[in-house]
């Protein structure tokens, strides 16, 4: 095996060139052409105008909110999971919903949050009255967090499981309070899991477009909806490609910041 040539390398490299290198190179190439096919830097100039910058900032803000809420909900859940008796069963239950088609879950939320849905029925019964829930920022962030939660819980859970419990006992024996132990021992030691989870949530949250369209209507514009709009509606591929290049750069930056942890692919 050692002296043999690596016969598997050629087909694999060919596949990677065809489906990873060339497509990304073509996106970069395309971003330098305007809608009529002339060479231009105009797409990037346009990207730096207030309209696009505002959209980018709001997209990053929403992605940030989604990541923070996911983490706030996921960390205690992951912590509680490690303390449970039937861990394997709970984990299975956690993963199971992610096998259900994403569109179905989002579609179910359309019914749950609708004017005559469950939530509004409950609100009316409580005497608060029917509210507009669908097509608001709240519903967008809620559904997004819902989708991403398992991808945040899993890496944090794994990090917590790897934590040596004697370190926690040692801290408690030395007189640290529960909060201090968490802040100085538990959290720093599970930081890798948190980073992996944030990476798995933040990048897809920047590029959501299906959830945005269905749940937020046209209220929220993310980088994902902008790319989809340019490629499939206005047919201005150059501009779409320029935004995509920005998204790729953002992705690389986040990966460098959080490390290339294999957080797993998130479907959306």
């Amino acid at each position: 095996m050692n002296a043999k040539r690596n016969v598997y390398l050629a087909p694999y490299l060919a596949w990677m060139a065809l489906f990873i290198v060339i497509p990304i190179a073509l996106i970069v190439y395309d971003s330098f052409f305007d809608i009529d096919g002339g060479f231009t830097f105009g797409n990037y100039e346009k990207f730096l105008t207030p309209i696009y910058l505002k959209m980018t900032v709001s997209s990053i803000w929403y992605a940030f909110l989604i990541t923070v809420f996911s983490l706030l909900i996921a960390y205690p859940a992951a912590y509680a999971l490690t303390k449970m008796k039937h861990k394997q069963l709970w984990l299975l239950l956690l993963i199971l919903p992610s096998w259900v088609n994403l569109l179905l879950k989002v579609y179910a939320f359309l019914g749950i949050f609708g004017t005559y849905g469950f939530v509004n029925g409950a609100l009316e019964a409580l005497g608060i009255g029917r509210q507009q829930i669908l097509f608001t920022d709240f519903s967008f962030v809620f559904v997004s967090v819902y989708i991403f939660i398992p991808f945040m819980i899993l890496p944090v859970y794994n990090a917590l499981e790897d934590l040596n419990p004697s370190l926690v006992f040692a801290a408690r024996d030395l007189g640290a309070s529960g909060w201090t132990t968490f802040r100085k021992v538990v959290f720093p030691l599970t930081l890798d899991g948190v980073k992996a989870g944030c990476q798995a949530v933040f990048i897809p949250a920047l590029s959501l477009f299906m959830i945005t369209r269905l749940v937020a209507g046209n209220r929220v514009i993310t980088l994902g909806t902008a790319i989809e709009q340019h490629f499939l509606v206005t047919q201005d591929w150059g501009m779409g490609a320029a935004i995509a290049v920005f998204l790729i750069i953002a992705m690389v930056v986040i990966m460098l910041l959080t490390g290339t942890g294999q957080a797993g692919r998130v479907r959306r």
Binding site: V100, A108, F118
Partner: peptide, 18 residues
């Protein structure tokens, strides 16, 4: 902890229950 997990999982399964 158990109560919290149950709430999280209830929400997780809400659309599927729906």
């Amino acid at each position: 902890q158990s109560a919290y997990l149950i709430v999280v999982f209830a929400v997780l399964y809400a659309p599927i229950a729906y």
